[in-house]
């Protein structure tokens, strides 16, 4: 019998897990709405994670009495900027040079993972000791939550025991919903992703929209990596490929959410629940655990099947997703 405490624990770990992939997915939704299929999400999350960690480490090492809030701002900006730079590389290659989007995205994933692990390994080596860096001040600033300050009941702590980034993800999702659905700029952006020729003829600067959406989208995706290093693994670095696995889950979440930011919120938490469910199922072996970790991908396939069978146009990806736009080829 599963107890309330166990359910509470499951939900809390699901929300933390879900926040990582929600950032990744929200950024990718913004990118894909401009018609760019950026499969570099895992690489970009790596870039965001390592840039935030390195910036915080540099600050903490070079300051006698590091202030958590200052370190938080520095690492946040560094993570966003490094990820947006990844998006800029992708944009330049696919929009300006018209390179194939799939190839470019996959390359970016490989590049981001390699670069981040190189620097992460160096940071760990520099830290000496047990070979594991730790940026306590910054990480605790990220992890500061209401439950640290006020004592909450078990029910309230399901909702209020997280660092600010868990709430930021929801704010971004809601903001994105209003931006895409209600604003003129959002309408223009969707037109670019659906039919760039029409957008162009209507006087919309297709190239600029694609660049900005892809770079900002990458920046948001990168925050997932930042949240992972600062909160999820508490300001450390491990050279395993967890971020990459989470990055692909973020891509799966985009499809699961049918390109709707609000769906990404509950979808992310659902993925989290499914991912951690094995801890609460008794009698699992190491190998049968993995079957449960596969569930998020299974539900994505189920959603894809359902969406394809219903053939509802609103559930489809942007019509020109993955295609380069040349004005001359009318």
């Amino acid at each position: 019998m599963i107890t309330f405490v166990q359910i509470s624990q499951l939900l809390q770990s699901a929300i933390v897990f879900g926040t990582v992939i929600m950032f990744g997915a929200l950024g990718e939704i913004l990118t894909q709405k401009s018609g760019n299929l950026n499969l570099g999400v895992p690489g970009i999350m790596y870039l965001g994670g390592i840039a935030g960690l390195a910036a915080a480490y540099a600050y903490e090492m070079n300051t006698a009495n590091p202030i958590g809030f200052v370190s938080l701002i520095i690492s946040f900006v560094a993570a966003f900027a490094a990820s947006a730079l990844g998006g800029l590389i992708y944009s330049f290659l696919t929009i300006t040079l018209r390179a194939n989007q799939n190839v470019t995205g996959l390359t970016l994933t490989i590049f981001g993972a390699g670069l981040a692990n190189l620097f992460g390994g160096m940071l760990n080596a520099m830290a000496g000791g047990v070979g594991q860096i730790s940026i306590r001040t910054t990480s605790s600033a990220y992890r500061l939550s209401i439950s640290n300050v006020v004592s909450l009941g078990p029910f309230a702590s399901i909702f209020l025991s997280y660092g600010f980034m868990a709430y930021l993800a929801i704010v971004i999702a809601v903001g994105l919903f209003f931006f895409l659905g209600k604003s003129r700029t959002g309408l223009n952006l969707r037109a670019v992703g659906e039919n760039p020729g029409t957008a162009d003829a209507a006087g919309i600067n297709v190239t600029r929209y694609k660049y900005v959406a892809t770079c900002v989208g990458a920046g948001i995706s990168g925050l997932g990596g930042l949240y992972y290093t600062m909160d999820y693994i508490k300001g450390t670095w491990t050279t395993d490929s967890t971020i990459e696995a989470l990055g692909w889950l973020a891509v799966a979440l985009v499809i699961f959410a049918t390109w709707r930011p609000l769906n990404a919120i509950w979808g992310a938490y659902l993925f989290g629940v499914l991912y951690w469910l094995y801890l609460y199922i008794p009698g699992l072996t190491r190998s049968s655990q993995e079957i449960f970790k596969m569930l998020p991908y299974v539900v994505t396939i189920v959603v894809l099947l359902r969406v394809s069978m219903r053939k509802k146009r609103e559930d489809q990806p942007p019509a020109s997703l993955g295609l380069s736009y040349f004005r001359e080829e009318r």
Binding site: L187, A191, T198, A199, R313, E314
Partner: peptide
């Protein structure tokens, strides 16, 4: 036709105007 399929008539009409 230069129209966005998943948009409504109104959305297509207002697309790219200076309103």
């Amino acid at each position: 036709f230069k129209l966005v399929d998943v948009f409504t008539a109104a959305e297509n009409v207002t697309l790219g105007t200076d309103d």
